[in-house]
Amino acid sequence: MMRDITLGQYYPVQSPIHKLDPRTKLFGTVILIAALFVADNIFCYILAAAAVFAVIAASRVPVRHILKGLKPVLFLLIFSVIFNLFLTDGKVLVQFWIFKITREGILRSLLMAVRLIFLVMGTSLLTFTTTPNQLTDGLEKGLGFLKVIRIPVHEFAMIMSIALRFIPILVEETDRIMKAQTARGADFESGGLIKRGKAMIPLLVPLFISAFRRAADLAQAMEARCYHGGDGRTKMKPLRYRAADRISYVVMLAFLGADIALRVLL
């Protein structure tokens, strides 16, 4: 069921992480990504894991809930693990036919997996603790400097937050149309790639039509409520840094410093 899709959905509890300024959380996510790419030894990963789990604990989002968010990227995860497992040169441990598993391969695929898992957990933690609107505000204000070079930051941010709001609705709709066409004898599961591709038409055409209809409706509803772009807009929840944000920035920079130090020194 659609309600099981947790990726990118706000998790409404009260926590210190929920209360942080979205810009702080965005910055934290960037730091985490940077740290994960900098990391090249086990200590870096231990540090990253400690950081991620500390934030999860502080956020009061159940770990189980966050793990569920990994489901959609499972395929990617398995793919990258297999890819790294079989295609890394090094000391051969097991060999059969044209496949060989190397020590480096195991290590690398493990690290890739960990990297990907933390990446998804970190970013989904951002969306679990930040409402789409806060996220929009954070991006808009955090990237506001881009307006100077004529990048429509407000519009992009708005598009993103609306996309997030409509993901569950469109997923539910997909499910409904799929069932309706199945009831008419459509088969989405068997056959080769071409047959399956063709079978998607009765699903995709109605889905696109519906998405466009929704988009037109929403545009009209927004206009009716005086939406006219970012000019002259005020905020219900304006962004203000608090003490906790300042402390977070210090901690995050310290974390990044430690991470780099671990890489350089070890």
Binding site: Y10, P12, T131, P132, N133, S161, I162, L164, R165, I169, R213, R214, D217, L218, A221, M222, R225, C226, Y227, H228, G232, R233, T234, K235, M236, K237
Partner: peptide, 21 residues
């Protein structure tokens, strides 16, 4: 579904006044 903009009820209610400044 097609007229609610925000992902939280109160933020959606605030959308109009925000646009009005």
């Amino acid at each position: 579904d097609n007229q609610i903009v925000a992902g939280v009820v109160e933020e959606d209610v605030g959308f109009g006044p925000e646009n009005m400044g």
